[in-house]
Design a protein around this nucleic acid. Structure first.
Lengths: 229, 229
DNA sequence: GAGGCTAGTGTCAGCCGCTGACACTTGACA
DNA sequence: TGTCAAGTGTCAGCGGCTGACACTAGCCTC
């Protein structure tokens, strides 16, 4: 049971073997995103990816449960960062404000974390593929749903609520998640693929959350300035 | 170009051949849902479904593009009904109210349409499988996203807005869709699997949309009555 | 009612994603 | 240095899905 003792911790030194594994994993991600960005998702086989890193297909599947998982590796990174950022928000903030600031404030950290793995520009191109490939989009939405579940838990805990009896945390997070996806879609469909453009889109969309739910838009002049093409 | 003349219309008489096709399609759906409900999604192969209806696997794929498509056939029916119901709402209704009433009011129509195809109770059991099967849930979420896209278009048109420049229709629909999904999840996780229970859950959740986005829950006593276990 | 036309079907072969089993190599650690 | 386990490659195989081609059966005309 306890073969511990020599194992001091995970952080100090990754171990020679461990580093090799990490390199293989990174190489697989990079190769996969590269291929997917140029040949599309369906045009890229797992064999292609494995061959590009010179490992067997079997090995690929020991690192990633599915082809989708590599393709969505970067978004997954971002999700983790966001969840962490929400957890770190001061507890006296209103829930929606906490979510909003978590996303906008952790932007640089996300970009940096992503950039350590792959060129951000590459990720941008992959993102378009994700949005335009049904199977990938589906997987992405499911992962987003899981993130929402986690966020709902965090929010509920902050507010001292039971996430299973009070629907509000989940509802709030669902609305929030929906808005994020709208921003993602608009961004991936537009011309400016910079991360800054996406950040601004998210900011704008989040600013519309309240007003968009207002009872009557037609008599609400306060928002129409966003409408001048 | 015009071999018409004898073909009066599509409605009058479906044609002998056409009816056979319809029967095969229905039989495939029923067999699929039956198998999926009892053996689970992954435990059901396309060969099983095809064999149950005594057609070849190849024929199955001529009716449905994928195994997911049969499994999600009923939800797809419901989505179509909802989109139609939203289109039929009076244009002087506020957007959120139109969505809300479309869902709640078309409930019986949906149930009837579903019931014509499969026992509603069977659909209920399949729904649980959908929620608990990652691949199916992913596909379901993607379809929901497509419905949201359609609804956003309808809302934008009602309000005389351009769906590509004004983010509000999409945001509203995204929030709405998120709430619907919360209701679905709560329902499929609970004990009462009746359609009436789901309808009530949706009503309750929709009633929470506004308040859930309020700035501060902790000082908002008006909602806490939902909290007594 | 015989014939031709075409929509619909079955069969077959094959790709791709993914998995279990087993043998081999190579880093870790005594 | 030798032992052990972690990591990898190979192989065989299943299930989803598709293209090609031949066959059957409903439809329409004459």
């Amino acid at each position: 049971m306890d073969t511990v003792g020599t194992v001091v911790g995970a952080l100090p030194r990754p171990g020679l073997r461990e580093r090799k594994k990490q390199r293989t994993r990174d190489a697989l991600v990079r190769a996969a995103l590269d291929l997917i960005a140029t040949r599309g998702y369906d045009g890229t086989t797992v064999d292609d990816i494995a061959a590009a890193v010179d490992v067997s297909q079997r090995t690929f599947f020991r690192y990633f449960a599915s082809k989708e998982e590599v393709a969505l590796f970067v978004p997954r990174l971002a999700e983790q960062q966001i969840a962490e950022a929400v957890r770190a928000r001061p507890r006296d903030e209103a829930p929606l404000e906490a979510l909003r600031r978590a996303v906008l404030d952790s932007w640089d950290a996300i970009n940096e974390a992503v950039g350590r793995l792959v060129p951000v520009e590459l990720h941008m191109r992959v993102y378009r593929v994700i949005e335009s490939t049904p199977a990938l989009l589906a997987a992405h939405l499911r992962r987003s749903a899981e993130l929402e579940e986690e966020l709902a838990g965090i929010i509920a805990e902050r507010e001292g609520l039971d996430v299973d009896t009070d629907p509000r945390p989940r509802i709030l997070v669902a609305a929030f998640g929906g808005v994020i996806r709208v921003a993602e879609r608009r961004w991936s469909a537009g011309d400016d693929l910079s991360t800054e453009a996406l950040r601004e889109l998210m900011r704008t969309c989040l600013d519309h959350v309240g007003p968009a739910l207002a009872t009557n838009w037609r008599t609400d002049a306060s928002l129409n300035r966003h409408n001048e093409t």
